[in-house]
């Protein structure tokens, strides 16, 4: 998955989102070792301090952990990862519902459209 940033919000926040996405889709698997900050920053073409800020916050959230000499790793806690997937799913559901609301559908109408589309 390529790193893509837009103008709207601080880049470190966008990095956090994209790391979470990578964990959720399995690109970063549980226990995987992350590249060092500098290399990750170079890959994403962002400032190393920005990358560091994002990773530090992800650590605080428990999605990453660091071992002093070994580096940074994705959490091995399956519950955290599942929890992440769930919260991302919820975010997307919210987004879907609010856009359908713009078209005039209430929640039930939106759910109906979705069911029709999936064909069940």
């Amino acid at each position: 998955m390529p790193w893509v940033f837009d103008d709207s919000t601080p880049i470190y926040q966008q990095i956090i989102e994209q790391v979470k996405l990578r964990i959720a889709i399995g690109e970063y698997r549980a226990g995987d070792k992350l590249l060092p900050v500098r290399e990750l920053a170079s890959e994403a073409e962002v400032n190393p301090n920005t990358m560091q800020k994002a990773l530090a916050e992800l650590e605080r959230d428990g999605l990453l952990y660091s071992q002093r000499t070994a580096g940074r790793f994705i959490t091995e806690n399956q519950n955290s990862i599942e929890g992440l997937k769930t919260s991302l799913a919820v975010e997307r559901a919210k987004a879907y519902l609010s856009r359908m609301e713009m078209l005039g559908y209430d929640n039930r109408g939106a759910l109906e459209e979705l069911r029709k589309f999936i064909g069940g």
Partner: peptide, 12 residues
């Protein structure tokens, strides 16, 4: 900082 500008002004 770039972050502050984005946060305060909601633009790049």
């Amino acid at each position: 900082t770039v972050d502050e500008i984005r946060e305060k002004n909601n633009k790049s």
